[in-house]
Design a protein around this nucleic acid. Structure first.
Lengths: 111, 111
DNA sequence: ACGTAATACCTCACCTGTCAAGGTATGTGT
DNA sequence: ACACATACCTTGACAGGTGAGGTATTACGT
């Protein structure tokens, strides 16, 4: 089952932040990890991913440096700032609330 | 805790459809119900709500009729079409998948 | 008589995030 | 030589959410 990214809109930033919580990483790898975790049912489009990096860096949630690869394509490495770590915590807490809210809104019994 | 509606974008349509599953209703009431269920932490903006009605009706998921209130403001009543009911079922199934995906993407242990 | 609030509907212009479609460059396998 | 994987990037169009505005009816207090 393919998941429409409309349903994940609003989570892209947090998903990327989460990928960086375990340490520095780069775009292509993050994208593959997300695709792997989702079992292929979802993947960020490149345009979305790189737009998100710009947004997150401008907001001071991540920072970047160019890698010094001796061979292969150059990579830009991103890492979480302290503000970014706090934001991630808030986002994960907000997710629990949102999840329970949507569950209730879709619930079988209310009123 | 206030929920950013960015996190709920993509669910507005389904949430409205769900409100109509128990029978005909109208905008103002639907909005109040959503607000009640969320305990006041979330409510659709009017512009969002009425935009959604247009969209859903154009898509053939709901249909509308003007009420014949003897007093008070006029109401436009909406109800689910068959296509709308099917769409709601699909949306609720998609939600379960999305929920589990985000849980995994936010998960503490993977790889 | 007048103002205010609740009910109930609506539209327009703007903003933001997604993404198709393009692009660049390096290294590996055939 | 050519395709493919890795790895990055930008532009323009599009869709949904929303602030700010609007209309109309009824009820209540002063």
């Amino acid at each position: 089952m393919d998941l429409s990214s409309d349903l994940l809109r609003g989570y892209t930033d947090s998903i990327i932040l989460r990928r960086l919580r375990d340490g520095e990483s780069y775009g292509y790898r993050i994208n593959r990890e997300i695709s792997d975790i989702s079992g292929g049912s979802f993947e960020l489009k490149e345009a979305t991913l790189y737009t998100a990096f710009r947004r997150l860096e401008a907001a001071g949630l991540i920072c970047s440096r160019w890698g010094d690869e001796q061979s292969g394509a150059r990579r830009r490495y991103y890492s979480l700032t302290e503000v970014g770590m706090e934001k991630l915590s808030e986002d994960m807490a907000a997710w629990k609330n949102t999840r329970s809210l949507i569950d209730r809104l879709f619930g079988e019994v209310e009123e």
